[in-house]
Write a protein that binds this DNA or RNA. Structure first.
Lengths: 385, 385
DNA sequence: CTTTGTTTGTCTACCCAATAAACAAAGTTT
DNA sequence: AAACTTTGTTTATTGGGTAGACAAACAAAG
């Protein structure tokens, strides 16, 4: 096994990437400014910029304001050079989106599902992808990749090892899809995808160490460290929903007892609420909470427990930001205060320094945008010779 | 702020580092083998090797076995090119070591301390470092750095923000020491240092994702991800000893209740044992446990709780290895089985796949070797032009 | 002992990317 | 209009890595 060595080609590729990323995050920008900003030589920038224009990753948008000399030629990222496809497979829905290279949704398809067999599920997924591809605008690079988020444990090769809520186990999704589609395919856990979506396009833009708490039926955690998704040795990280917060506490679906998600998930909420309002959904409970003290108190309690688990994560990671997402984020106005209160109570001042607690900004799109972003990222760093 | 750009000098530096590291971990090795192993061109390797010889980082040890042609010239790492100093400051001891560049201890000094004032403590530390420097063998690069491990929270600049057991707060140790010594100085939390010591020289050699659980008076955690120490946004990561495992449980010294270390540390152990044997130390209890069922049961329980917290970390990190170190590791024979049993009970098969649970191999030297290794690492990547 | 083939390590010519400096073009300021 | 500024390109140079030729050193076969 050989290590990655360094040579001029790598240098060029890295510098080209620096130039491109500088344009993406500072557009419109001139060649001179890129040189200033990146520290690269003017001539180097000029040459790389011209290659990027040739490849249609960027384009000249015309002259900008003069600052006392020749007017600069402003450069823009060509977000329409290609399009990415993202799917979020949930328990009772599939959401599919087509985005440009900046993560703007140009087409979307929502599909409710109920009690589908595995084969029907796969068939529906494939049909959906076909439809998304059909609705992808023409462009230089076309569809640059397909990302799929699933609520379960995904290994390093994209195999879905266990998705209890979908009743999937050992599903080789990349293999199944590669038989139909000849595009790069990325499968990712829903919490990981959501985390990435938020740091790229949502509440966590410009944050490098972020813990995304996906509070839905269960609780999953997406971990972004040093700007990169951390996945663990086999890809099974972020199962913090099953960390013990009460030894010998409530029974959890995983077989253990006292798990965080037995106290702070949608499942826990519905479980509490069924004594008051049997069969009510999260959305219904949120509405009722406005007038019903007892229901409001349940949200209070859920928020408080949510804060306890988050505090555990804060003490372990000392992150820059916590983002609370997925379905419980809909109840932001009900759980934000008790959650923050709980975090304040359970962490030291040290850990609260420089710490932001936010809710998801992308609502239902977090995961789909996240996997779409993975495909884009993959394309921009690999695809660019 | 300019980004790090890429040029030929960087390429050379990186490749030189590849060559050096290949030699360090594969010595004795020939130039041809390095080329084979690294993927670099023979000529490139030859040139870089000759520079490294010039700089005395490596040397030729004579001809090796022929494999059917000209006999190769074998290369060895010159571990005596410089020496590193490591200190482990504990509550009632200071341990100082001098190591060569491979982490072999060439001189050591143990010092017991009791109820020293802050000034006395600093004075003693400085005197010890002076003594260690005096006992450092002559070499090309001399003392290449000083690393110090402390039982407390250390920020990114090496300032000790809080070390409750030492009664330190806001101690600018780097500043104090730089007035005395003109060497690179690295201050690190004891758990982080121990973690690094173990992955470099101990139980975690060749492991990239390791959680080191420092179980002493309290519990600290050192997190190694992708081969690097993870420190969080401000350097306060790994305070997992204070994660809640029993909501509204035992009071902890931090002010909260139900913290892991209130159930699984030396402090918790002594607390339990004082009802049976008031005033007994950990070492005494370990001896007594051989014959005393009640004491043995306390170790059992501590191990069980230790396993619960470790399980929480496993679910979050999906690490390759857990290393249990610090004082409680002395009771390995008493707590290993209950700990492993507890981990088996509280984690899923997925997380146990490819997972090793080990105890510290470096015993009392973990932290001192760790900080020493930090200094060496710093020297080898920066010091080498 | 000779011949043949292999392995090792160096040397040379060459390639390629970044850089500095010179330069032209297109502005602004005095 | 003249002088200065800024932008972006062109030129020559520097300094790395690489391929391939090469000699030295050795093993194996005859």
């Amino acid at each position: 096994m050989t290590i990655t060595t360094w040579n001029q080609q790598i240098v060029k590729k890295k510098n080209k990437e620096i130039v491109l990323r500088t344009i993406i995050s500072n557009a419109p920008i001139s060649r001179a400014d890129i040189a200033q900003h990146s520290g690269l030589n003017k001539a180097t920038v000029s040459s790389l910029v011209n290659e990027l224009i040739e490849e249609e990753f960027i384009y000249e948008s015309g002259p900008g304001e003069s600052s006392g000399g020749r007017r600069p030629v402003m450069l823009l990222f060509n977000k329409k050079a290609g399009y990415s496809i993202g799917l979020d497979i949930g328990v009772n829905y599939i959401l599919g989106i087509v985005t440009d290279l900046e993560g703007n949704v140009v087409y979307e398809q929502h599909q409710s599902i109920h009690n589908l067999s595995f084969d029907e599920m796969i068939h529906l997924t494939i049909e959906m992808i076909k439809n998304l591809i059909e609705h992808t605008p023409q462009s230089r690079y076309g569809v640059i990749g397909i990302g799929i988020g699933v609520p379960g444990i995904v290994d390093k090769n994209g195999k879905v090892l266990l998705a209890p809520n979908l009743k999937w186990s050992h599903v080789d999704l990349p293999d199944i899809l590669h038989r139909e589609f000849d595009y790069p395919i990325i499968i990712e856990n829903e919490a990981n995808a959501g985390a990435y979506g938020e740091i790229r396009f949502g509440a966590g833009v410009n944050c490098n160490n972020v813990i995304y708490v996906s509070a839905g039926i269960g609780i999953g955690v997406g971990i972004i460290l040093k700007g990169e998704l951390y996945k663990g040795i086999n890809g099974y990280s972020g199962e913090s929903g099953h960390m013990t917060i009460v030894v010998d506490g409530e029974k959890c679906r995983c077989g253990n007892s006292g798990c965080w998600e037995a106290y702070a998930s949608e499942h826990a909420l519905l479980n509490q609420a069924k004594h008051i309002l049997p069969g009510a959904t999260l959305e219904e409970l949120i509405e009722i909470a406005e007038e019903n003290k007892n229901v409001k108190e349940i949200f209070n309690e859920i928020g408080s427990y949510l804060g306890i688990g988050i505090s555990n994560l804060i003490k372990t990671f000392n992150p820059q930001q916590i983002i609370i997402g997925n379905r419980l984020a809909k109840a932001k106005h009900l759980i934000e205060q008790p959650t923050i209160k709980s975090i304040n109570k359970h962490t030291l001042d040290f850990h609260q320094k420089d710490l932001q607690i936010n809710f998801s900004k992308l609502s239902i799109y977090s995961a789909a945008l996240g996997v779409s972003a993975f495909a884009i990222e993959n394309f921009l760093s690999i695809g660019k010779d």
